[in-house]
Design a protein around this nucleic acid. Structure first.
Lengths: 351, 351
DNA sequence: CTGAAAGCGCTAACAT
DNA sequence: ATGTTAGCGCTTTCAG
């Protein structure tokens, strides 16, 4: 009769200890105290603390169909773009009583799918996808299983409306960057892109070319070097730049990591940044402000992205409850943060 | 009778579609095919794919008492120390059919406890704690709830044996660093510590002082500056160093981030690293090898830590099953990685 | 104001 | 070789 310590106490144990029924215990658990006598509530509460009882979310989920858990898929937590967005996702999640199941796909679509299926089996209430190297299959699976989903920077026409999307509008920031460089007097440009099989790499490159074209710079004259988004490839890119004649006076890298590599490599060969070469990054990672010279870069609103993602998931939960249509399409802006890695070509003056 | 698409199919739906009982379906789900006719198995499998059925882990967990999910608590995924350990935890977890619930405590013990309780309620099979700013309360809670636990770099006598621990042996690496600097000819040292209310900060500082003492350097003569482990505090530390006369010729920072800040600040005031100042970091973050000069630093075996943590959790599961005692005490080593941020005092030669 | 009973989707004896 | 049954720990009608 008495509970052994072999297993954790259940609601029945609490009920017995308090001399009430399970329903009553459940009611205080749920905060459903409308018509309850004060002393019974207290007896129940005492029993709960006495037994050190904590309800099983598993059992609860089985009946309520909700786990109060959401999945967040990222490519790699080591990527400095993520920490802030993760942080803000967690903040709003926690504030609404949700836990975040953070998963690395390691840039591996297979692994991502495996994780996804596992999350679905575990009945997460929703999923946020922020992995650049995702595959359409993921979303198809999610839609098939009717899991509320929001995905960052991804497009697929025939499923639009089924899921929510957050689009990062690179164009405004890139345009600002181009304008900034033009205004400083630059005319010869290079771009270090991400892997050109990634859609976002193309987007960024084309936005830059387009913006430049609007300032009457011939896109064909812009040197494009393909990188892989990592520091080392920024270094390599610089070497390629050095071989050019005439050399570009300004370079826009698809992310900040490559900008760092490029700047460091430049210094090692005796180039002065920004005097001999202006560089603009993208991401505005924390490090960008801490290096010398502090990096001029296009800032993404990481916190806003995280917040919006989780908020639209919550919104989706609501709609689902009301049997409404899914799928809102959101967009966030980018803007240029001017620091000291850009100046007039050949100038010795920090702008 | 026919399933509406309102809710996901259950094992009963599959059973009906295949014309068998739920048990039979469950058997093929569990791979319990010992005495099953081939054609029934096939019928079941067909029904499963036809209905696009995936079993509910929630229901399963309710009966099996296992969620195949483990929690991993870290201070902040943005800390460059973590990515590799997270990666390796996930690798071994995934290989054993476990999912990892990765959680940020944001250096906030309160929040950590909240998350922990949530994980417990969700019945994770085990928890790994790798948050420097944890509190004993966490472990007490975990032990009370009989959750298998492994914690990194933490000590509490009266609970030893209840949980597994992984201790990072800083002493060997720190000793190597001290020996290296002494051998180069350094005699005047500084140490930039972490916050002195953190146990690990004390450990690192004292290990350094002790090692130096063994080389007949008076610990009292070692300049100690308290930092906060972030880049900016490395910069500040350098300024304090500059005010000293005579200046130390070698400095050991409690982590790599501060070493970066220190090196960058040094360059900005015209100091040559390593000629004018040798610096040794700790962590061996990826960036350490990428900066100029590449940082000499004490490496922690991040991957090994992650692997060991998850493996000892699995080990704990086994023991638990056999009603064995808990709590193994593991230890990992550190070692010095010599790069180019250290050389003879005043030397122009890269070592 | 509280209790009894049914059932969430699954697994695991225990039949047969 | 497969079906029947009894729960797992909880919420939620429905009675009273």
């Amino acid at each position: 009769m008495a509970r052994t310590s072999l297993s954790r106490p259940t609601i029945a144990d609490v009920a017995q200890a308090a001399g009430v029924s399970k329903s009553t215990v459940s009611r205080v658990l749920m905060g459903n105290l409308a018509y309850m006598r004060d002393d019974t509530r207290q007896r129940v509460e005492q029993a709960i603390t006495a037994l050190n009882y904590s309800p099983s979310s598993v059992a609860r989920s089985l009946v309520t169909k909700r786990t109060h858990t959401v999945g967040l898929l990222v490519s790699d937590v080591g990527n400095p773009f993520y920490p802030e967005v993760i942080h803000s996702v967690e903040d709003v999640a926690l504030a609404h009583g949700y836990d975040v199941f953070l998963c690395n796909t390691n840039y591996n679509p297979e692994r991502g799918l495996q994780i996804l299926r596992s999350l679905i089996a575990k009945q997460v209430d929703g999923v946020m996808i922020m992995s650049s190297s995702m595959s359409d299959e993921w979303v198809i699976e999610l839609v098939k299983q009717e899991v509320p989903t929001v995905v960052l920077d991804w497009q697929i026409s025939h499923l639009a409306g089924e899921v929510s999307t957050i689009k990062v509008d690179f164009e405004t920031g890139v345009r600002e960057a181009a304008a900034h460089l033009i205004e400083l007097g630059h005319r010869r440009f290079a771009h270090i892109s991400g892997p050109l099989n990634m859609r976002t790499s193309l987007l960024r490159r084309d936005a830059f070319l387009k913006a430049l074209a609007d300032f009457n710079v011939d896109p064909a004259a812009v040197v494009i070097i393909e990188g892989d988004l990592r520091i080392e490839s920024g270094r390599k890119a610089l070497n390629q730049l050095m071989a050019l004649n005439p050399r570009p006076t300004a370079v826009f890298t698809a992310n900040d990591m490559m900008a760092l590599g490029l700047i460091w490599a430049a210094r090692e060969v005796g180039l002065q940044i920004p005097r001999d070469l202006s560089v603009v990054g993208l991401d505005n990672i924390r490090l960008a402000a801490e290096i010398n010279p502090p990096l001029t870069t296009i800032a993404l609103p990481q916190s806003e992205i995280g917040r919006l993602a989780m908020e639209s998931l919550l919104e989706l939960f609501d709609r689902r409850k009301n049997a409404q249509e899914d799928g809102l399409a959101l967009q966030v802006d980018t803007h240029l943060v001017i620091r000291n890695s850009t100046c007039q070509p050949g100038s010795t003056v920090d702008n």
